[in-house]
Amino acid sequence: MDFLQPVTWAEALEAKAAHPDAVPIAGGTDVMVGLNFGHLRPALLLDLTRVADLRDWAVTDGAVRLGAGVSYARVISELGDRLPGLAMASRTIGSPQIRNRGTVAGNLATASPAGDAHPALLAAGAEVEVASVRGTRRIPIDDFYTGVKRNAMDGDELITAVHVVPPSGPQQYSKIGTRNAMVISVAAFGLALHPDRRAVGTGIGSAAPTPRRAPAAEEFLAGELDSSGLWESRAELPEATIARFGELVAAAAAPIDDVRGSARYRVHALSVMARRALTWAWADHRSATQEA
């Protein structure tokens, strides 16, 4: 196995163009597991940790541009206020050591349905910035996940950054694991309320071949909030609305039975998590001062 270690982004893109089969490695929290278990035997590893351009985040055009090399630990410590949903998801990931190494971009590159960042990115409506020697493009998160551990990137492309607009309303994130830390998701749910757009964002993890949204649940809730003037009145949500939202989130899932949990449990857990997340988010919305 060969090992390339570019120090500039241009070199990295050239290397990827020359070797489309090269496996990029940043934190290594997925790649090294694959190597150690013999599931992954790439001819070439492309180490991106020396590329300085990837290491930072910045606010551009009102969105956070999160460099591909930024660790989960930094998302938690530096972006907890701007990207609360993603920070909550990041807190559920692995151990402190894993969070020091792992990156959101790595989660996207692997595109596992169990990746913890995905439901938060879906709910927030993120965009993935990818690049190749041919140029740069931005892929809406809805179009990014194309199959089990597959994404919309071409062989010569690398992830540059993730763009996430700081929310105008509350966000929540919940994940089920069968122990209380360091556990792969059995089912996960991300929720974002967007009062500015009068919209609702959702994301479901580990309960379908890809991470996915629950569009019917989003439309239902946005409609209820609109028609009842709840965005403005900030009155209590009717129990029936909360329950229906949970049902619709669960209905959007297409889980399987596997070693981590049953399909029935996943559907059930999603409905519970969706109800609770909405309850908490709505309480936040009610207690928040008038948005700017």
Partner: peptide, 16 residues
């Protein structure tokens, strides 16, 4: 959250 079932995975604030 660390005292709750589910820990920092944020699945309950006491509900259930």
């Amino acid at each position: 959250l660390r005292d709750m079932p589910g820990g920092v995975s944020n699945t309950t604030h006491g509900e259930g």
